[in-house]
């Protein structure tokens, strides 16, 4: 009879896994740091590049420190699901919060006050 899915035994993790993970993470960290401190990119470009480096380091640590993919398949599945919800929450919040002054015609409160005083005699 098929038992419910449990983690299957895997061979012990080699030490080198942590060494590789550590070295790659250090490189990624230094790279991101240098890119910002040396002002190589700016604005949206910088954000995307730093985000990408962060994601790369995330995957490195997931694989080499957390050994995701080995062992129970539920770990990878729940992780992906969690990330999906994380992205929905963070992206949704940013999108919504930026949009809440839509009817303010992209003005700051001070600008809007000036506009109303000037144009509508208020």
């Amino acid at each position: 009879m098929r038992k419910p899915q449990l983690e299957h035994r895997h061979s012990p993790v080699p030490y080198i896994s942590y060494v590789i993970g550590f070295v790659l993470s250090v490189i990624a960290t230094l790279m991101a740091y240098w890119l910002v401190v040396a002002d190589i990119f700016s604005g949206n470009q910088a954000v995307i590049i730093i985000l990408s480096i962060a994601v790369v380091q995330l995957i490195v640590q997931l694989v080499f420190f957390l050994h995701i993919g080995r062992g129970s398949r539920w770990k990878l599945a729940t992780f992906i699901l969690a990330i999906i919800f994380v992205v929905m929450l963070v992206a949704g919040t940013i999108w919504i919060m930026n949009n809440l002054d839509y009817n303010m015609m992209n003005m700051s409160p001070d600008q809007m006050t000036e506009y109303m005083e000037h144009n509508e005699g208020i």
Partner: peptide, 18 residues
């Protein structure tokens, strides 16, 4: 159910696209 939450505050400032 995780993609609908703004419907609780449709009237609170968001634009037409959101």
């Amino acid at each position: 159910s995780f993609t609908v939450w703004l419907h609780h505050f449709f009237t609170m400032g968001a634009g037409a696209d959101v």
